[in-house]
Simulated assay, not measured.
Amino acid sequence: MFIRKVHHIAIIASHYETSKAFYCDVLGFTLMGEVYREARDSWKGDLALNGEYAIELFSFPFPPARPDGPEACGLRHLAFSVEDIEAAKQHLEEKGVSCEAIRVDPLTDKRYTFFKDPDGLPLELYQA
């Protein structure tokens, strides 16, 4: 087996339109396509970043809540690479997104900060 790259990340949103607006209007993803799946009462949107397919955004009626805390078993967070973390953090805060203080990774000496999507999914900005 040879894995070349991550193909996509699937996210289930409690409010599809709210999360679609967050990922597209705030984070800068583009909507490549979307479909309503009537049998599941579910939307599925395909989101791209810089022209590359990256996220499947789903909605389902009454999804269970994510386990609380970043140390819960499962996905810990998604990290996005940025060139200028100060500018990226400022952009998010201007859009009403609360960010933690910028920290420095002691292993890589790189700067990073965390914020959350509309459903509380932990997201990270990491200055490459």
Rank of each mutant, 00 (worst) to 15 (best):
R111P: 05
T18F: 04
F60S: 15
S98I: 05
A54M: 06
C73V: 14
F2D: 05
Y36V: 03
G33E: 08
R76H: 15
H15L: 13
K5P: 02
R66G: 01
G28T: 10
K95T: 00
W43S: 04
H7R: 10
R111N: 10
R76Q: 13
F58T: 01
R40S: 01
P118H: 02
F114S: 09
C99P: 08
L78K: 02
S19L: 09
D68H: 08
S19N: 14
F29W: 15
E34Q: 15
L47I: 08
A65E: 10
M32R: 04
V82M: 12
F58H: 10
E124Y: 05
L125Q: 01
P67K: 15
P64H: 08
L49A: 14
D41M: 12
G96P: 01
K110Q: 13
F114V: 07
I9E: 07
F62V: 11
A13R: 07
P61E: 11
L31I: 05
Y23H: 09
R4E: 10
F2L: 08
L57E: 07
D109W: 01
R103K: 15
V26R: 06
F115R: 06
S59V: 05
A101Q: 12
S19G: 09
D109E: 12
A21S: 15
E83Q: 08
K20D: 07
L75K: 09
D109G: 11
A128D: 10
A21M: 11
D46N: 08
A79K: 13
Y53D: 14
A39D: 02
I9W: 09
K5I: 01
A79Q: 13
G51K: 03
C73T: 12
F29P: 06
L125E: 00
H77D: 14
S81L: 11
E86A: 10
V6Y: 01
A87L: 15
P61S: 11
L78Q: 07
A101R: 12
R40C: 03
F60Q: 14
E34P: 00
R66K: 11
A13T: 11
L92V: 01
P70Q: 15
L125D: 00
L121S: 01
N50G: 07
F22N: 10
T30S: 12
Y23W: 10
